[in-house]
């Protein structure tokens, strides 16, 4: 007998799911509310999925792309609130970037999608207990942290601050959610854009208010107690580099700074090798890593 250790079933076999809702977030970006069909024991073993994990989302003949969970609490979304079968509902926010994501972005309600997952390690939520949780996001990087924000009251954090940057005001995703989170007051939110000129809502009262400039300019004035703070960062790698460096300058340890990185993926199961960073596999050891784990490895921009 050959000794094996791990999950043999399902990881490489996609299951069908149905699109239950589509929401436009920003130009080229849509959120899909998805219902898993098929027997409950079949992967993806939702609702076991944790914030920060991802599915391989695809369609036969088109291919697959790794996409993070942006909805794990359907009852907290406008679209999900009225759906039945809430425990099988989850969501992904997709930017039409290329071949696969371009195809996925065309889905409408009732369409079938194929997926495998959940894969990877999520955000280390337990690290936030008793500490101030700092969320730094850029562009679509807000998507994998949305479920963290939605469960913020249950994390036992002493406070939660979200600093989010986007290219232009119209690129800010989850605008309704941002307004609601702001009004609920459970977390502090600051938004910034690189280019404030091109604002379609110009003249209207912005809620929340939008700064202009890079996210680092929002980090700089922050007063933090470095040993009592934990940071989760997600965005383009170059943005994560500068954001993490601001925090290091403030005295935070690399082990308290977590980033979610993107790498080429083919399997999601730790076998194909495409996602390797130094000794790590992004799909199974990440995509969330501490800054310390990645610092100094080749082919890393951090």
């Amino acid at each position: 007998m050959i000794e094996t250790e791990g999950n043999a079933k399902g990881a490489s076999v996609p299951v069908k799911a149905i699109i239950r809702g589509v929401k436009n977030e920003a130009p080229g970006v849509r959120t899909f509310l998805i219902e898993k069909s098929g027997p409950p024991a079949q992967p993806p073993c939702l609702p076991a999925a944790r914030p920060g994990q991802f599915n391989m989302l695809g369609y036969p003949g088109v291919g697959e792309a790794p996409i993070s969970f942006s909805v794990l609490h359907p009852e907290k979304t406008t679209e999900g609130r009225n759906q039945k079968n809430q425990k099988n509902l989850f969501g992904h926010t997709v930017r039409a970037a290329g071949r696969v994501t371009g195809f996925l972005s065309g889905f409408v309600e009732g369409d079938e999608v194929f997926l495998r997952g959940p894969f990877g390690r999520g955000w280390p939520l337990e690290e936030a207990r008793g500490k101030h949780l700092l969320l730094l996001t850029g562009g679509l990087g807000l998507a994998p942290l949305k479920p963290v924000i939605e469960m913020a009251p249950t994390l036992g954090a002493s406070g939660v601050t979200l600093l989010h940057g986007a290219r232009e005001p119209r690129d800010i995703i989850f605008k309704t959610e941002l307004a609601r989170w702001k009004s609920e007051g459970a977390i502090e939110i600051e938004l910034t854009v690189d280019n404030p000129e091109d604002n379609p809502d110009k003249g209207q009262k912005q809620q929340p208010k939008i700064h202009s400039g890079l996210i680092t300019e929002l980090i700089r004035p922050l007063r933090i107690d470095p040993s009592e703070t934990v940071a989760f960062i997600c965005g383009p790698e170059i943005m994560m580099r500068f954001a993490a460096r601001e925090l290091l300058i403030k005295g935070m340890a690399g082990s308290g700074i977590y980033v979610s990185v993107e790498r080429r993926m083919s399997c999601g199961t730790g076998h194909c090798g495409h996602c390797q960073i130094g000794p790590w596999f992004t799909c199974k050891d990440g995509p969330v890593f501490s800054y310390t784990q990645l610092k100094g490895l080749p082919d890393v921009i951090l």
């Binding site: 007998m1 050959i2 094996t4 791990g6 999950n7 043999a8 199961t269 730790g270 076998h271 199974k284």
Partner: peptide, 20 residues
């Protein structure tokens, strides 16, 4: 190769069958 394909979190069914 056993470490890659036979140890978790996921095992590869094709490699496992051939190895067997």
């Amino acid at each position: 190769l056993d470490k890659v394909f036979l140890r978790g979190p996921y095992i590869d069914p094709f490699y496992t069958a051939r190895r067997e």
